[in-house]
Simulated assay, not measured.
Amino acid sequence: MAGNSTRHGLSVTSRALAILGAFDQQHRRLTLTELATRADMPLPTAHRLVGELIAWGALGRTESGHYVIGRRLWDIGLLAPVQSGLRRLASPYLHDLYGATLATVHLAVRDGRQVLYVDRLSGHASVPVVSSIGSRLPLHATGVGKVLLANAPADVRAEVLADLPRITPFTVSQPGVLSRQLDKVLADDYATTVEEMSLGACSVAVPIRASGQVVAALGVVVPGLDRGNRPRLVSALQVAARGIGRSIPGPLAD
């Protein structure tokens, strides 16, 4: 079948999914022309489908005229087992951890070469925290990210080490230095960052294991780390992480 006739044979659902699939980490805001080009469809067709997706809430439009993923897709995404199941199981432990530390608490999983924040509780201290539920941040510059990267497959580690953008003056951007840090994370079973993602914010994170595999990371963000508070934070995190891990029966599902 010729390519043109194949395109004509696509269902409305397939075309709508092609519009949504045009977005990725490098293309979060797209013009109508860019959407049509990336979805491989005529501009009038893209215009009609975009209008329907906006009306339903799957897409939004910025003041600059660019299109972005809409809030309704995020609401639906929260129902996915990796988020709803894990969040539900971890919730009491996150609240216990928050009560013990009064720090911002993060629950995160690895999504490719980034950290996906599944849940977050805001702490009492005035600390600059750039994460939000559903946001993605670099693996190499966050505490939970370093935990997940240290336990990631070798090819993922190699890809991340090959591209280490400097986010703050304290971000570790030398592959050799980060590689040694990751080895230490595996040995110590926890990771730390000091103003590597945002100035004035430090973090401690530990892995969450289920059936012997690291499935997520649990972390806290605090104004500073020293010999006095680091052991206490690591201990509190490990207690909570073990509790979460024991509560995961198998593949996360509702």
Rank of each mutant, 00 (worst) to 15 (best):
A2K: 14
G3D: 12
N4I: 12
N4F: 03
R7P: 01
R7Q: 06
G9E: 11
L10G: 00
L10A: 09
S11D: 00
T13E: 07
L20V: 11
G21A: 07
A22K: 06
F23A: 12
D24S: 06
Q25N: 08
R28F: 01
L30Q: 08
L32Y: 08
L32C: 08
L32W: 11
A39M: 13
D40C: 02
M41S: 09
P42T: 07
L43Y: 09
P44G: 00
H47I: 03
R48Y: 11
V50Q: 01
V50W: 02
E52M: 13
I54T: 03
A55W: 02
A55Y: 08
W56R: 05
A58S: 15
L59E: 05
R61L: 06
H66P: 01
Y67K: 01
G70A: 04
G70H: 04
L73K: 03
L78A: 11
L79A: 14
P81E: 02
A90D: 04
S91M: 04
Y93K: 09
Y98P: 05
Y98W: 14
A100I: 12
T101L: 13
A103H: 04
V105M: 06
V105W: 10
A108Q: 00
D111N: 11
R113F: 08
V115A: 06
Y117W: 15
V118L: 06
D119F: 02
D119L: 02
R120G: 02
V130D: 12
S135R: 10
R136M: 09
L139E: 02
L139N: 05
H140A: 14
A141R: 08
A141D: 12
A141I: 05
T142F: 02
T142N: 10
G143C: 07
V144G: 09
V144F: 05
V144R: 11
G145S: 09
G145T: 15
V147T: 13
A150Q: 09
N151C: 12
A154L: 14
D155K: 07
R157A: 13
R157Q: 15
A158P: 07
A158Y: 03
L161G: 07
L161V: 13
A162S: 15
D163W: 11
R166L: 13
I167D: 06
T168W: 06
F170Y: 14
V172Q: 15
S173P: 04
Q174V: 11
P175N: 08
S179H: 14
R180A: 11
D183V: 06
K184Q: 12
A191W: 04
T192F: 02
E196T: 08
S203C: 14
I208W: 00
A210W: 04
A210L: 01
G212P: 10
A217Q: 10
V221E: 12
V222A: 12
G224I: 03
D226R: 08
R227A: 15
R230T: 10
Q238S: 15
V239T: 14
R242F: 04
I244A: 07
I244N: 01
P251G: 05
A253M: 05
A253H: 09
D254I: 11
